[in-house]
Design a protein around this nucleic acid. Structure first.
Ligand SMILES: NC(=O)c1ccc[n+]([C@@H]2O[C@H](COP(=O)([O-])OP(=O)(O)OC[C@H]3O[C@@H](n4cnc5c(N)ncnc54)[C@H](O)[C@@H]3O)[C@@H](O)[C@H]2O)c1
Ligand SMILES: NC(=O)c1ccc[n+]([C@@H]2O[C@H](COP(=O)([O-])OP(=O)(O)OC[C@H]3O[C@@H](n4cnc5c(N)ncnc54)[C@H](O)[C@@H]3O)[C@@H](O)[C@H]2O)c1
Lengths: 215, 215
DNA sequence: CAAGAATAGAGAAAAGTTTCACATTTACCG
DNA sequence: CGGTAAATGTGAAACTTTTCTCTATTCTTG
């Protein structure tokens, strides 16, 4: 186990590994080899071993990895052995879909607050979906609520034009992580963990790959 | 202009550049330097120039890049100078949010079909949102409709357990591009352009970055 | 029209990431 | 109980991507 900088791609792959390990665990499997795990996740077997080697030795030579054990270890590495509190900001089309995303609750994420500038406009639409009212807060309350409910990560799902304003409000709060869905590069002070999740970028990527093949 | 393999990261960045160029164009700006474009997109200036160098020479030394011209060139490179036909498969929570995603229509993407195994269940919810009925097709019709409407890219938004089944149906159709939202690594024959858009992977990434900083 | 400032392009260097190859360990079988 | 097959961990090699630095070009100003 070395203490070199861990590539971001390694973190992404660990996330994929752990998801696949859960599938294997449900099937009742006990041991998996780097080769088999690699194939399922679409990577090279040496890559799997190297990724894990950044953090320790988790396998048994000649045998493979005990699934439950490896899964627990990766979860600890990724910080998934605790509950993370999420807030969703902008409860429109996309935001309300996230609000009802069931898989959150299987993972260690919990939505503890929803914000929108137009609470009245949102409530009807959202409440009828789950049959009970959902509390929609005004962004002005962000700082106070972030502290009280210990929000760790804010998900920005407002129109792109509002993204920087929302980011500035987050910068003033106790929140330190952002997942940004708007197609805008937001500017934050040092010390924040910000990841963008640009939908059209990936779509553009698919289009690029097809560009010569399709009429 | 060399003919070496273009890094995927370059394609992603080109997508970001073109989006920012559009913003600048709207503001009425005419010329931009690699340094300024780089800063807005959060990358190094040499990186911008190198990314473009894979495809040609688009700037003027001592001046910079003409915004309209560069924007058009990048769109041609990415294959965005034509209309791409999309289908959404699985019109649940997420799928219906995509169906009403307004920015598609500013870009060169057009949704030409929506599929769900439970058309009846979906129609009410979706129709009331836009005030008129939306045609929901059964996946059995995929092959036929894909040909007739020239679907280029399928967006998979079904439950994860259904993803491979849907992928197999796509493999039998004329569609060659896939954007997969389900947290599943789908297996496809050679020759398909497949990109995954794993939401929790990115969330896990934010959590990882925060892991030591937050209690 | 000459000098100076600004900026793209490109080769080289640096940094980062993936893959290879093999020594080592473990389990199993005859 | 020894030999064989399977599989990890790891250093080195190969490859990829990013950054640096310098040259060439263009515009502006006096
Ligand atoms: N709809 C999709 O499927 C989809 C997919 C990918 C990315 N996106 C991006 O996600 C963002 C939201 O898309 P949408 O379709 O949900 O838009 P939307 O217009 O349906 O929803 C935006 C919501 O944000 C609220 N809002 C506006 N300003 C706000 C502020 N300052 N603070 C808090 N809330 C505010 C609005 O009241 C509205 O409810 C956009 O940037 C879009 O580009 C959407
Ligand atoms: N909801 C979100 O915000 C969100 C975010 C990221 C990823 N995802 C992923 O997107 C997928 C969809 O999530 P959701 O929340 O919309 O689920 P959902 O249950 O609301 O919707 C799934 C839809 O797919 C339809 N369906 C089922 N089998 C099908 C098949 N074989 N062919 C066509 N349609 C079929 C169902 O009838 C339903 O309408 C899931 O895999 C989820 O993990 C969702």
């Amino acid at each position: 186990m070395k203490f070199s900088k861990v590539p971001e791609a390694t973190i992404r792959r660990l996330s994929a590994y752990v998801r696949h390990l859960e599938v294997l665990e449900e099937k009742g499997e006990v041991v998996v080899s780097s080769a088999s795990l690699a194939e399922s996740c679409g990577v090279n077997a040496a890559q799997v071993r190297k990724d894990l080697a950044y953090f320790g030795e988790f396998g048994i030579r000649g045998v493979g990895y005990y699934i439950k054990d490896l899964s627990d270890n990766i979860k600890t590495i990724l910080g998934l052995n605790r509950e993370w509190h999420l807030a969703i900001i902008g409860i429109g089309n996309l935001g309300s879909s996230l609000l009802f995303y069931k898989d959150f609750f299987k993972k260690n994420y919990k939505i503890v607050a929803a914000f929108d500038v137009d609470p009245a406009g949102v409530v009807g639409r959202v409440s009828e979906k789950i049959g009970k009212p959902v509390e929609i807060l005004h962004p002005e309350q962000l700082q106070e609520v972030a502290r009280d409910r210990r929000i760790d990560i804010a998900i920005i799902a407002t129109p792109a034009s509002e993204a920087q304003k929302v980011a500035d409000q987050i910068a003033q709060s106790s929140i330190r992580g952002i997942l940004n869905f708007t197609p805008t590069q937001i500017q934050m002070p040092k010390g924040f963990a910000v990841k963008n999740y640009f939908f059209t970028t990936i779509l553009d990527n698919v289009a690029y790959l097809l560009r010569w093949r399709v009429k």
